[in-house]
Design a protein around this nucleic acid. Structure first.
Lengths: 144, 144
DNA sequence: TTCTTTATTTATAATCAATATAAATTTATA
DNA sequence: TATAAATTTATATTGATTATAAATAAAGAA
């Protein structure tokens, strides 16, 4: 979750044009609470942009990732890359039944983050933290 | 990192035969400190098992994952699934230059883990935590 | 505006890790 | 040893993503 403007201005600052397609992709990414795949973005925008090509979605997402404004989550349990406009270290919860991915705010993440930075010896750039399980909505219908 | 026997006995307990191929895959997984891909395992074992097929590697890995004895890391920055025999919640460090993935022991993980279990409302099954950056060996050769 | 150049989108084909399938091989048991 | 079941192997297929090139749209100059 993040301001649409933060994504669009990053594109402009990189010398890229803010086309209607790119704007729509940025807006959808910024406003979505779950973490959509490229296919989900494509299908969602197609009614409004009938000529939209999947390649444009992939290109725009890759650009935003290269600019560091969007993270790829490649580990969501459904073999699809999901995109997350929140690039700060945080916990993602992935439901193994409905494959929805949501964030959860846990203050302890910051303490952990400081400790990894201190103890690793790595020059760190970012993190992805995923927990897997059954979301409250899916628990009644599925028994482990 | 984990005992080879823990993997092989899990296969036997599931009613599966411990073939030479499966044993070799389990041993390599248990003994490797980084987190190999299916292709890495295949290439490493081929000299010893010239008839080995990639399919057997994939099948064995999938079985071990289904048995909960091995985790898949799908988010390592090189578009390949890596396999981790350590299924307890822990931090993985991925180098964006050499693409090696190592573990780091951070006590704060357990506190975080407790808090996610308490606060999420999810019935949790596991976690994957990845940090990205330049490892100490790659830092001199690459400038950010 | 019109022309010219450049960036972008689109359509199509290609890639490649992973899966599906079926034949060949090995193992277990009678 | 013979039979049946499990496993491995070889081959073909899938499907998300990438590569390529043609079509389109936008920017700048005259």
């Amino acid at each position: 979750m993040k301001n649409t403007n933060e994504l669009t201005s990053a594109l402009k600052q990189a010398g890229l044009r803010l086309t209607p397609q790119r704007l729509a992709i940025c807006r959808f990414l910024a406003e979505s609470k779950d973490h959509p795949t490229a296919a989900m973005i494509y299908e969602h925008l197609r009614p409004q942009y009938p000529s939209l090509s999947a390649m444009t979605v992939y290109n725009t997402l890759n650009t935003l990732v290269e600019l560091g404004k969007v993270n790829v989550l490649g580990d969501c349990g459904d073999d699809h890359a999901h995109y997350d406009a929140d690039t700060s270290p945080h916990i993602n919860l992935a439901c193994i039944s409905c494959h929805r991915i949501v964030d959860i705010a846990i203050p302890q993440v910051e303490e952990l983050d400081r400790e990894v930075n201190r103890a690793s010896g790595y020059q760190l750039l970012g993190a992805r933290m995923m927990y897997y399980g059954l979301c409250p909505a899916c628990q009644p219908s599925k028994v482990l």
